[in-house]
Simulated scan of single mutants.
Amino acid sequence: MDGEYDFWLLDLDGTLVDVEWSYTRDVFDRVGERLEYKFTDREADILWSGLTGSRDRQLRQWGIDPDEFWTVFHDEEDPMVRAEQTYLHDDAAFVADLEEPVGLVTHCQEFLCEPVLDRLGIRDWFDARLCCTPETGWKPDPNPVYRVMDDLGVGENGHAGVLAGDGAGDVGAAWNAGLDAIHVERVGHERRGRCVRGDYRVESFDELF
């Protein structure tokens, strides 16, 4: 794939990095106590990894108000602890070698994302980055993608780009923005409960090169 695209966009959590399960379990235990809801391991996994698509829709199906959940969830997350328990996937190292412009489009909130980038030493991998908010929209909405493309200077003139991520929302955002999509399956089809389509479907970025 070397030279096939004029620019690359990437998701962060579940795509380039992941968090130790002990951290996830601890956060959901504390959130559950405050919401008076006991999250099972499966439910915590579904929400953390976005296995069923829209997390807000999933929360409503469980009778949990999404706004209340996210307020409590972000209040219970410790940026420095999360950064300490976040690790970089070995196959993500290719990003450092890309010669094309590279952008980051992530649902990870800025107060959590920044310490992770610093601790892992990957901030300079990206020429532009955006942490999605209600104002920017959320993938598969293409607007966050367009904003990063504009920051990279590739929003016009027919530049060919690709977006890589671990979820259906990443693929949807890519296609909605007119880009090719790479789906990297980190959790496996059995655990996800379905297959996610993409222009490329891989279990490791090493398969692309």
Rank of each mutant, 00 (worst) to 15 (best):
M80G: 01
Q109V: 15
Q109C: 08
D2E: 14
D75Q: 15
G14Q: 05
D26W: 07
E114I: 10
R34Q: 15
D91Q: 02
G3S: 03
Q85S: 11
D56Y: 01
F126C: 02
V81D: 15
C113H: 11
E20Q: 12
L104R: 01
E36M: 07
L51T: 06
V27K: 02
A93C: 00
H89K: 13
P66T: 10
W48S: 04
E20F: 08
D118Q: 13
R119K: 14
L10Q: 04
T40R: 01
L10K: 00
L35W: 05
D78N: 15
P101N: 08
P115F: 12
T40K: 02
T15Y: 08
T52R: 13
D91P: 00
F126H: 01
T15A: 06
Y23H: 12
R60A: 12
D41E: 15
V81F: 09
L98C: 10
G50E: 06
S22K: 15
P66D: 10
E43Q: 15
E110T: 12
D78R: 01
G3F: 07
W21Q: 09
D56K: 12
V81I: 12
Q61F: 08
A96F: 06
D124Q: 11
T24H: 09
D118L: 08
F7M: 07
L117C: 04
W125Y: 11
D91W: 04
F69S: 04
F39C: 01
V31P: 01
I64C: 04
D65N: 13
G103K: 03
D67F: 08
G32K: 02
L120T: 07
V102M: 05
D26Q: 13
I64M: 07
L112T: 02
F28A: 09
V27R: 01
H107W: 12
D97M: 11
V19C: 10
W62N: 03
G53W: 08
D118S: 11
G14V: 05
G121H: 10
S49H: 15
R60Q: 15
T15G: 03
T106P: 03
D18R: 01
D29Q: 11
V102T: 14
P79M: 06
S49R: 11
G3H: 06
L10R: 00
W21K: 09
I122S: 07
L47T: 01
D2K: 11
I46M: 10
E36R: 13
R119C: 02
M1Q: 05
R57H: 12
P79V: 05
A92M: 06
F126L: 01
S22E: 15
Q109K: 13
L35P: 00
F73V: 10
D45C: 09
